[in-house]
């Protein structure tokens, strides 16, 4: 069997490899170098490749400013909003794909939620703010979990609807013939079969929730409740950009993303492998 991988490598291969490595790693080095420089060195008109004086004051400033607490807020809000979206979307997508609705109302509903998703979020912000104020959900992480559904739920319903539609009905019919209740069919048959889809949907939802800015800005005010995107933005002030701390927090903020990518990569490959069986 012919292999797509060849062991013959031209003379340009190491040069190209070195160039690609340089292009990939230099920005990371640059971020690290800036995070280790003093504020005065960072605003020097002639940038220095290596820090003249290595300082950890930027990292100390980030950590003393409550970075870990804000990281915890982001992780909580992202995880909770993704879990809530997946739970609601799983049930909604199953219902929309399996039940017969008069006048194809299921498709009308799908279009309606995508239209709601297409509205600029700021249009929804004022009425939602009013509602959340009355429900005492402002300045509250659970409020953020709920308001993030504006972004994540339509995504999840649409994606899971596609996965559900592609699932053959015969599995559920067989389960029904074996005496499974609708909930047993849903939990023991459908859920494992759409696992790949749920993982893929979860990734999208996590990315959206992790990066969300506008609603976090408007709905949360106390420093101890801020999420990471707001904290990172705070290092860019109108009068001053704290370059050292900005780069430092950028590096620290990538750590959970790297861990997440590693876990997801393994799960995704496992899930796809299961799907192929």
């Amino acid at each position: 069997m012919a292999s797509f991988v060849t062991k013959k490598r031209g003379i340009l291969f190491p040069i190209a490899l070195a160039a690609i490595l340089f292009l990939t790693l230099f920005p990371i080095y640059w971020i690290l170098a800036i995070s280790l420089k003093t504020p005065l060195e960072n605003i020097s008109p002639v940038p220095t490749l290596f820090p003249k004086t290595i300082t950890f004051q930027n990292y100390a400033g980030i950590l003393s400013g409550g970075y870990l607490r804000n990281l915890g807020n982001s992780v909580f809000v992202t995880a909770a909003s993704t879990f809530l979206s997946l739970a609601l979307a799983f049930l909604a997508a199953y219902s929309l794909s399996r039940h017969r609705f008069p006048l194809k109302l299921n498709y009308a509903f799908l279009i309606w939620i995508i239209v709601a998703k297409m509205l600029p979020p700021v249009v929804l912000a004022v009425p939602l703010y009013d509602m959340f104020a009355k429900m005492k959900l402002l300045n509250n992480l659970w409020g953020l979990v709920l308001v993030y559904q504006v972004y994540t739920l339509p995504y999840c319903i649409w994606m899971l609807f596609g996965f559900m539609k592609s699932l053959p009905l015969e599995y559920e019919e067989a389960a029904e013939l074996d005496g499974a209740s609708p909930f047993q069919t849903l939990g023991l048959v459908v859920l494992p079969l759409v696992r790949t889809g749920i993982v893929a949907t979860a990734i999208f939802s996590i990315i959206v929730a992790w990066d969300e800015f506008l609603f976090s800005l408007l709905f949360v005010r106390s420093p101890e409740l801020l999420t990471l995107p707001l904290v990172i933005a705070n290092f860019i002030g109108e009068y001053e950009t704290l370059w050292g701390q900005l780069m430092g927090v950028g590096l620290l903020a990538t750590i959970p993303v790297l861990i997440f990518s590693r876990v997801v990569y393994r799960r995704m490959t496992q899930a796809y492998a299961l799907g192929l069986k």
């Binding site: 004022v126 300045n139 408007l218 002030g237 109108e238």
Partner: peptide
Amino acid sequence: FEVLKLSGDDIYQKTVIDLKTGTGS
């Protein structure tokens, strides 16, 4: 006290939505 230290744009957005809805935060 709860002192919010916001950028020029953020302070505008946060206060306008709150004042507009009469929330009184």
